[in-house]
């Protein structure tokens, strides 16, 4: 069993507030790992640290055994670690086609080319079209991102992360805020992600978590509260207490 993504004693303080408290996490290769926890448990902070959006106060992040704690985000993406955002973080004025083109060009190391126009990278255009079709975005490829229906924007979030050909993909609440009638499409895309991509799902929705994940870590007040298989977590009285306590 090899861990593809690992953290060691990860800590992050904001002043006196400890948002991430000694988190040591191992994500197995090919896993469908869910990270759950009540509101304010520090899930998003953890994802931000993993992807280089925030530096940790102390501790280490390792990808395939290689330390990446201090690498900038774009280098982590090159090494195969990428993510989506809970709230859409898209390029508002770009069309889905342009956004996906950008991600593929950067992946291929062509992003610094100054001269030839984007359209002349014909293979990239082909790949972008195929990717958009796969994520149900082919019909809207020429529309401006901020005019897309919300469900399509969520799909673009995932497509954009997927375009980088990640080994590890962190999905931060992929279906958050999607209206009921568009929800099915997002969920089926998530469950159809290829098996060789390790997926870490950060989620609130317990139905989604238990239908998707084979392993679950529970985060409470910035620390790992419990960890185990989906069945173990579902059966754990402690975890239930945390969630009941929250809703009470």
């Amino acid at each position: 069993m090899t861990a593809v993504l690992e953290t060691r004693d990860l800590k992050r303080r904001f002043g006196a507030f400890v948002a991430t408290n000694d988190v040591s996490l191992k994500i197995e290769r090919g896993a469908r790992h869910a990270l759950i926890g009540p509101n304010g448990a520090g899930k998003t902070t953890l994802v931000n640290i993993l992807t280089g959006v925030l530096p940790p106060t102390s501790g280490q992040v390792l990808l395939d055994g290689e330390e990446i704690t201090n690498l900038p985000s774009h280098t982590r993406v090159k090494k195969g670690l990428t993510r989506t955002f809970q709230i859409n973080q898209l390029f508002a004025d770009y069309t889905p086609l342009e956004a996906v083109m950008l991600a593929i060009l950067e992946r291929e190391g062509l992003g610094s080319r100054l001269w030839a126009v984007v359209g002349s990278y014909r293979k990239t255009v082909d790949e972008a079209a195929a990717l958009l079709a796969r994520f149900g975005l082919a019909s809207v490829m020429a529309d401006r991102t901020n005019r897309l229906p919300y469900g399509k924007q969520r799909l673009l979030e995932i497509a954009l992360a997927f375009a980088s050909k990640p080994r590890v993909l962190l999905l931060d609440e992929p279906a958050a805020g999607v209206p009921e009638d568009e929800r099915h499409e997002v969920l089926s895309i998530v469950s159809d992600l290829p098996a060789d991509v390790t997926v870490v799902l950060i989620e609130h929705d317990m139905d989604l978590v238990f239908s998707f994940a084979n392993r679950i870590s529970v985060l409470v007040a910035g620390a790992i509260f419990a960890e185990g298989t989906a069945a173990e977590i579902a059966a754990s009285p402690d975890v239930k207490a945390v969630y009941l306590g929250e809703s009470a």
């Binding site: 774009h74 993406v77 990428t82 390029f91 950008l102 980088s164």
Partner: peptide
């Protein structure tokens, strides 16, 4: 987001 699609 640009950094997270690999833009340096």
């Amino acid at each position: 987001r640009a950094a997270l699609v690999g833009v340096p």
